[in-house]
């Protein structure tokens, strides 16, 4: 049953969501630096972007950080989800759940600040220096994304039919084997989604990375953020268009895979 104007509302709503992004894509192909004049179609800004060593290095750093933190986060998140769903006798569970979900509501500035203070403290007390490497960013991103992964995997584990797992245990499989052979394949869609979400969150974060990163390591969002402070730049248009294209391809592949129930 339609109510009057529902199509207009949807049209306006999606216009609001997509028009700004379409503007970016269109103007990434404008040769002029100014928005007022459309000179001609060109790939000029893509060229300058791809020959910018700072952006290339930062992209590589970001991808490395995102891959590593997403992987660790998925492992720890799956463990935490198992603890939350399956360990009924665990005494510290409320504290555990609270601490693991707290980063979801923690303002980024507070989280960045507190982690940096921890790293400074560690260096002062134990002499353990994180140096200028990417280690602090990776640790911070794991802590940030852990809660999201845990929630995703927990939701899946919660809905799972436990009897299959119990049957395996009754037939003499060790708990470890039952997990890897029965449970893991069944929760793998949630794990894949969790990895992708953690990857995207890590690739997106600018505040926490700015706080904890040393002088030598700059991630892509940090570079973009500092250039945005100076206003419009056609190179960022080109970068955004590339990112959006990659994203759309990724989403289409995922949608097709999920549709065909491959994962």
């Amino acid at each position: 049953m339609h109510f009057r104007g529902s199509k207009i509302i949807l049209f306006l709503g999606y216009l609001f969501l997509y028009l700004p992004l379409i503007c970016i894509v269109v103007y990434s192909f404008n040769e002029s630096r100014l928005l007022a004049t459309w000179t001609r179609f060109s790939f000029k800004w893509y060229g300058t972007l791809l020959s910018n060593p700072i952006i290339l290095r930062a992209t590589w750093t970001s991808i490395k950080v995102a891959c590593l933190s997403a992987t660790v986060s998925v492992v720890l998140g799956t463990m935490s989800a198992i603890i939350i769903t399956r360990f009924t006798k665990f005494r510290w569970k409320p504290l555990f759940i609270g601490a693991i979900t707290a980063p979801l509501v923690m303002p980024e500035v507070v989280m960045g600040l507190s982690l940096l203070m921890l790293f400074v403290g560690l260096e002062r007390v134990f002499g353990w220096s994180t140096g200028s490497g990417t280690t602090p960013i990776i640790i911070a991103h794991i802590t940030l994304t852990l809660s999201y992964v845990t929630m995703l995997v927990h939701a899946r584990l919660h809905d799972l039919d436990r009897s299959i797992e119990e049957a395996a245990l009754d037939l003499g499989a060790s708990p470890l084997k039952a997990f890897f052979v029965i449970t893991l394949p069944m929760i793998s869609p949630a794990i894949v989604l969790g990895w992708l979400l953690a990857f995207a969150l890590s690739l997106d974060d600018v505040v926490i990375a700015s706080f904890v990163s040393g002088a030598g390591s700059t991630t892509l969002p940090m570079v973009v953020f500092s250039s945005l402070r100076f206003g419009i730049s056609p190179e960022i248009n080109a970068l955004a268009t590339i990112l959006m294209t990659l994203l759309s391809i990724g989403v289409i592949i995922l949608a097709v895979l999920f549709y065909k129930k491959k994962i």
Binding site: L21, C23, L228, A240, L243, V251
Partner: peptide, 27 residues
């Protein structure tokens, strides 16, 4: 899905889109 899709693009890019629209030399 069309609602979440822009959410998966980088956060900074979504903010930048509005700089492009609203700034003095903007759209």
């Amino acid at each position: 899905m069309l609602v979440v899709l822009p959410f998966w693009t980088s956060f900074l890019i979504r903010v930048y889109a509005w700089i492009m629209l609203l700034s003095p030399g903007g759209f």
